[in-house]
Simulated scan of single mutants.
Amino acid sequence: MFLRPIFRYFFAAQNEHGLHSPFVFDLYLNTIKKDTLKPRFEAIEALRNEMLQSRETLTITDFGAGSKVNASPVREVRDVAKHSKKSAQLGRLFYRLIQHFNYSTIFDLGTSLGLTTLYLASAKPDAHIFTFEGCPETANLARRNFEKIGALAPIEVIVGNLDETLNAQVAAIPSIDFAFFDANHRYEPTVRYFETCLTKAHENSLFVFDDIHWSPEMEAAWEYITQHPSVTVTIDLFSVGLVFFRKKQPKQNFVLRWRFWR
């Protein structure tokens, strides 16, 4: 089922040589492609390896589209880590984006084990991370992981159905600088969460959507978002999509080459 989106992506994707937008050219060449390793990342990846070996069990409360590989509500942590993890490369990309734009108010819609959240919290110690998790047992494990690593930026874990918790938190803050949408891989909730957070987006905000080619529903949601009148620039990296609201930029949608599988 996923061969067609992958083939479409590789056929359409370009590198910096075909870019005529100075903003996207600089972002792509100096932030998206320019991967870096930091000593901080070693501790996060050591924790990932620990999670991949853990036989601890969790009773999963799932408000999203569910797992495609394990529908059981009782799962070992190693199973959750294997099938729901985001790559270290993606975490490093978020780290660079947050540093590049100097973001402070960060929303993480989908905590899971907290590994990607730790990358977000490592980028800017004076940022404030709001991370949302529907499953209480998963949230408790994520909190333990934050304490074990020692998150550099404050992390507030908000537990419960995102349909109920997101509106209240969005209403409580003045603006959202960066938001990562990884909570519910279905069309209607994805669009609804986007429009809720959009009320606090500003000129320099960045929204990142996970798994935009995961299913026909997610591709439809991504198409809706790219065409939204508030959105000016989007970048399809296959595994994630970047969304900008820069009013001085012409409306353009880019598909750029990125080694998302590492």
Rank of each mutant, 00 (worst) to 15 (best):
F2G: 14
L3W: 13
F7M: 15
N15T: 00
P22F: 02
F25S: 11
Y28D: 11
D35W: 03
T36A: 14
K38I: 03
K38E: 14
E45D: 10
R48V: 04
N49D: 13
S54I: 00
T57C: 07
L58E: 09
T61C: 12
G64N: 15
A65C: 09
V77P: 09
R78G: 00
V80E: 08
Q89V: 00
G91D: 12
I98V: 13
N102M: 07
N102Q: 14
S104G: 15
I106F: 13
L109E: 04
L113D: 05
T116N: 15
L118C: 04
L118W: 09
A123C: 07
A127F: 10
H128E: 13
I129V: 05
F132I: 11
G134C: 04
E137I: 03
N140S: 11
E147K: 09
E147S: 14
A153H: 03
I158P: 11
I173S: 08
P174E: 14
D177K: 05
D177T: 09
N184F: 08
R192L: 05
R192N: 06
C197R: 01
L198N: 11
A201F: 04
N204R: 07
S205Q: 06
L206W: 03
F207V: 05
F209R: 01
F209N: 02
W222L: 13
E223W: 12
E223M: 11
S230P: 05
I235M: 02
D236Y: 12
L237I: 11
F238D: 05
V240A: 04
F244R: 00
F244V: 00
K251I: 01
N253L: 10
N253P: 02
V255Y: 12
W261K: 14
